[in-house]
Simulated scan of single mutants.
Amino acid sequence: MKTKRPLLYFFCVLIGSALALPACAQQHKKNTQEQESPKSLDSTKTSPKASAKPAEKDLDKMLSELKESMISYMKSAEPPYTMDDIDSCEKILKVYLAAINASKNKEQGMEIVKTTVISLNALNGKTEETLIETSEREQIAEIIILASSRKGYNTVDEDITEEWREW
Results as ranks from 00 to 15, higher is better:
Lys114Tyr: 05
Ser149Glu: 09
Lys126Phe: 01
Glu68Tyr: 09
Met110Phe: 06
Lys4Arg: 14
Glu162Val: 06
Val156Tyr: 11
Cys89Trp: 02
Ala141Asn: 12
Glu136His: 04
Glu65Ser: 06
Ser149Arg: 02
Ala147Thr: 03
Lys57Cys: 10
Glu90Thr: 12
Leu120Ala: 02
Ile100Ala: 06
Ile144Tyr: 05
Tyr153Thr: 00
Asp84Gly: 02
Glu129Tyr: 12
Lys61Gly: 07
Val95Leu: 15
Lys104Gly: 11
Thr82Ala: 03
Glu136Phe: 05
Ile140Gln: 05
Pro80Ile: 00
Met62Cys: 06
Ile132His: 08
Thr3Asn: 08
Lys30Pro: 03
Ile118Asn: 03
Leu131Asp: 12
Thr127Glu: 06
Glu107Ala: 05
Ile118Gln: 10
Glu163Phe: 09
Gln27Glu: 14
Ile143Ser: 03
Ala77Gln: 11
Met74Gly: 07
Leu7Trp: 14
Glu90Asn: 10
Glu34Arg: 01
Asn121Cys: 13
Lys106Gly: 03
Gln35Asp: 15
Arg5Ala: 04
Ala99Asp: 15
Pro80Gly: 01
Leu21Val: 03
Ser72Thr: 13
Glu65Val: 04
Met110Gln: 04
Ile143Met: 06
Glu163Arg: 07
Trp167Asn: 00
Arg137Ala: 14
Asp87Asn: 14
Lys61Ser: 09
Glu129Thr: 03
Leu21Ile: 06
Gln108Pro: 04
Leu66Trp: 10
Glu56Leu: 12
Thr161Trp: 01
Asn121Trp: 08
Ser72Cys: 09
Ala20Gly: 10
Gln108Asp: 07
Met74Cys: 07
Phe10Val: 02
Met74Ala: 11
Lys53Leu: 13
Leu66Met: 13
Ala55His: 13
Lys61Leu: 08
Lys49Arg: 07
Gln26Met: 12
Ile132Phe: 12
Gly109Gln: 00
Met70Gly: 07
Gln108Gly: 04
Lys39Asn: 09
Glu107Tyr: 00
Ala25Ser: 11
Pro79His: 03
Thr134Lys: 14
Asn124Ile: 00
Ile15Ala: 15
Ala23Pro: 02
Lys57Trp: 13
Val13Met: 14
Leu63Asn: 11
Asp157Ala: 07
Lys45Ile: 11
Leu97Trp: 09
Ser64Gly: 13
Pro22Glu: 00
Thr115Lys: 13
Asn154Lys: 01
Ile100Lys: 01
